[in-house]
Design a protein around this nucleic acid. Structure first.
Length: 139
DNA sequence: GCCAACGTTGGC
DNA sequence: GCCAACGTTGGC
């Protein structure tokens, strides 16, 4: 299974919104960046990801699961853009802040640190384990 | 609220 | 196909 990270501004679409959708989940639409789109096209059913709040909070706040592989983004007629559907799996016990991630030398190569603007990004297995540890949840 | 980084667009 | 201009994102 591959691991990913989904970034969102909590004022636009936050963890609470995602949880409210329950098992039905929701399209991760609105992505207008080729790199991010390409990562979504690589996602497989059942892959897991972190839900990250940008801007005010800057922390990993939950775990999500891919429940539909890439399909056309219904928020646009432009057929260049695809997206996946994800559902909330569980919240973290302890939010893992960007500061914590930056302070941990093992996470220096995370895209989150290297390229803060990419909104959908892969997470390495080792990084997943480490962040789950910091978050107080089982990988 | 500012600014740096980066991606996209459009003119040539 | 290049590159300048512009818009957007996100950290600080």
């Amino acid at each position: 299974m591959a691991y990913w990270l989904f970034k969102s501004e909590p004022s636009t679409w936050g963890w609470a919104d995602q949880q409210a959708k329950g098992e039905a989940g929701e399209e991760w639409d609105g992505v207008r960046n080729y790199q991010a789109r390409n990562f979504m096209r690589e996602m497989k059913l059942g892959d897991h990801g972190f839900f990250y709040h940008s801007q005010t909070e800057k922390a990993v706040v939950g775990v999500v699961e891919v429940i539909a592989e890439a399909h056309p983004d219904s928020s646009t007629d432009d057929d260049r853009w695809d997206c996946v559907d994800i559902k909330a799996v569980r919240p973290v016990k302890t939010p893992v802040t960007l500061d914590m991630i930056k302070a941990d030398g093992r996470l220096d190569n995370m895209i989150l640190v290297r390229n803060s603007r990419l909104s959908v990004q892969p997470v390495a297995d080792a990084e997943w384990q480490i962040i789950c540890g910091l978050a107080g949840i089982d990988p």
